[in-house]
Each structure stands twice: as C-alpha cells, then as structure tokens.
Amino acid sequence: MKNEYTIYDDYVVMHIKRRNGTLLECYIDKEDYEKVSSFPFKWGSTWRPKIQNYYCVATIYLGMVDGKPKNDRIYSP
C-alpha cells in the first residue's frame, strides 16, 4: 500500500489525500489490514451521495478490452 497509515492497538487508520489537498481517514480493523496493505497501488476516495459520505477505493487496471482500457474498483472492507 502506498498510503501513509497509523497503527493503533486494535485498528489502523489509512490516510488518504484528496486531489484538492484535504485529508481523509479510513479506519481498518487490524485483521483486515494485511489484505488492504497487500494492494500494490494507492487507495483513494469517492463520494457516495446515497450515504452522504466517502468510500475508500482502489482502481485495478485489467488491460485492454475491445481497444479500450478496462478497470475495476475495489472498495475497502
């Protein structure tokens, strides 16, 4: 994982810097941290109007399909 993080007793806080410079925190259970940290790219955020809050997301490049780039998003647990 390329994001900065802080480890506490029973959880981890992943720090996400948005394009506008504001910082968000993503709280992760310690048992899920290894899975999240094994992702080799940077985590980001996306706004979800339905819940009026942000999700932590990572985008995986899957290659070219029919001449167009194909991506998939992973949402933090």
Rank of each mutant, 00 (worst) to 15 (best):
I60D: 07
D66F: 04
E31G: 02
D10K: 04
K30L: 06
M1V: 12
E4Y: 15
D66C: 03
L62M: 14
Y54R: 00
K70T: 09
Y54F: 15
V65K: 09
K2Q: 14
S38W: 02
V12P: 03
E4F: 14
K30Q: 02
T6E: 13
Y55G: 02
Y27W: 11
T59S: 14
K68E: 13
D66V: 04
N53Y: 02
R48F: 11
E4I: 08
D66E: 15
I7E: 11
M1Q: 10
H15T: 10
Y75M: 10
V36Y: 07
T59H: 08
Y5E: 05
S38H: 05
K35H: 09
C56W: 05
S45A: 15
N71P: 05
I60S: 10
M64C: 02
C26A: 15
D9S: 13
V36K: 01
Y54A: 00
Y27Q: 06
M14N: 02
I60Q: 13
Y54M: 03
W47D: 01
D10P: 00
K30M: 04
M1D: 09
E31D: 13
K17N: 13
K17W: 09
L62A: 02
A58G: 09
S38G: 01
V36L: 07
K2W: 08
S38V: 00
K17Q: 15
D29F: 06
D10M: 06
P69M: 07
M64H: 04
F39G: 00
N20Q: 08
P40E: 09
G21I: 07
K68P: 02
E4L: 14
S38D: 11
Y33F: 15
G67W: 02
Y61R: 06
K42Y: 07
I7F: 00
D32E: 12
K70D: 15
G21K: 05
T46M: 05
F39R: 04
S37H: 13
C26E: 01
E34N: 07
G67A: 02
K70E: 14
Y8T: 08
Y55P: 03
K30E: 04
F41T: 07
D32S: 11
I7W: 01
N53F: 00
N3Y: 11
L62S: 05
E31S: 10
L62Y: 08
Y5L: 12
Y27V: 12
Q52P: 07
I74G: 02
Y75A: 04
E4H: 15
D9G: 06
D32A: 03
F39D: 01
M1S: 11
K17C: 10
M14C: 06
W47L: 00
V13T: 11
L24E: 05
E25V: 01
K30P: 01
P69D: 10
Y55R: 00
P49R: 06
S37Y: 11
C26H: 09
N20W: 09
I74F: 12
R73V: 09
K70Q: 14
Y27F: 14
N53V: 00
K68H: 10
I16D: 01
K70C: 12
K50Y: 14
S37G: 00
R19A: 12
Y61M: 06
M14G: 01
Y33M: 08
C56V: 13
A58W: 04
Y27R: 13
P40R: 03
T59V: 11
K42C: 00
F41H: 14
N71H: 15
Y11E: 03
P69G: 03
A58R: 03
